[in-house]
Design a protein around this nucleic acid. Structure first.
Lengths: 153, 153
DNA sequence: TATTGTTGTAACTATTGACATTACATCGAG
DNA sequence: CTCGATGTAATGTCAATAGTTACAACAATA
């Protein structure tokens, strides 16, 4: 039994940013280099095994293809056809956004219904968030990166 | 250094549902009972100390008043004037919704800019979420609970 | 004023989960 | 068959969570 209370905020979706960076690197460097887990790990600055695991999730979602023996990953869709929603759902278990206490007092009218009432409201909020995600494509992010690069020269 | 990768989803905002339940109980039972931390704890089914801590955050945000010696909490605003956004911001540190890796490779064009690019996109999504929250009031939730109660009789 | 029940916090512990790393079987091209 | 790469399991470390105990401060009231 857990109640998830504490002094620090716990954020959700810790893997999505890593997955985004992986996909951006494949899109940007796929032609120039062999995008192995070691190569990708050096951009994200994490252990290659973490890249492989995330890459496995992206592969299961049909976003990338990974060459088993020879190494290297490539996109299975065009950057404009990969959205943040695709990536989010690839790496996040599809659970509720918020964790509502599991065993409130069933004899309390509030406790008895909190999960139903709040859960329904919050799932609407989550749907909106996913809709936002679906409007952002990998191509958009590639363009953002290119624009940021220009300014740095 | 943490990279937040793993097999389970980590959700954010674990305290908000508890805070919501506390406020609902105060609103609903404030007239009938003395809403002490022990009373509230029996609805949420957590340790009274957890209630007191959350109650302290709600008090700091000006949402409730807690009687120090005598015990019991009461709302400082009308239920229609308390939104989920108020509650969210009372109990959550105002950090980014997503945790983007802290030290990507600065020599990689993607790594160098991922935080800027993705962070800006995601903060927009968070703003939308907060806007959603601001449309949901404690009164709405009280009505939802009352409606759920009816069906149970 | 002493009692009583409550709040506000500060410890402290147990436990969970995240992340890094190692290890190794498997794979595919040369 | 060799070599470099992937896939995945196992393990260790560490931070954060949640629960609990403890106790001082507080306000009503007997």
């Amino acid at each position: 039994m857990r109640f998830f209370y504490g002094d620090d905020t716990v954020q959700f979706s810790f893997r999505m940013p890593v997955a985004v960076q992986i996909l951006l690197c494949i899109a940007k460097f796929g032609g120039m280099f062999k995008t192995t887990s070691t190569f990708l790990a050096s951009s994200v600055n994490v252990h290659p095994v973490i890249i492989r695991k995330t890459l496995g999730q992206l592969r299961n979602a049909g976003l990338v293809e990974v060459a088993a023996g020879v190494g290297g990953a490539k996109l299975m869709k065009k950057p404009q056809d990969i959205t943040l929603q695709d990536i989010f759902q690839a790496v996040e278990d599809d659970e509720d956004l918020f964790h509502i206490q599991d065993n409130p007092n069933p004899r309390c009218p509030v406790g008895r219904n909190i999960k139903l009432v709040l859960g329904s409201r919050l799932s609407t909020v989550k749907e909106h968030m996913l809709a936002d995600f679906s409007q952002i494509t990998l191509e958009d992010l590639l363009a953002d990166v290119a624009k940021a690069e220009e300014k740095q020269q």
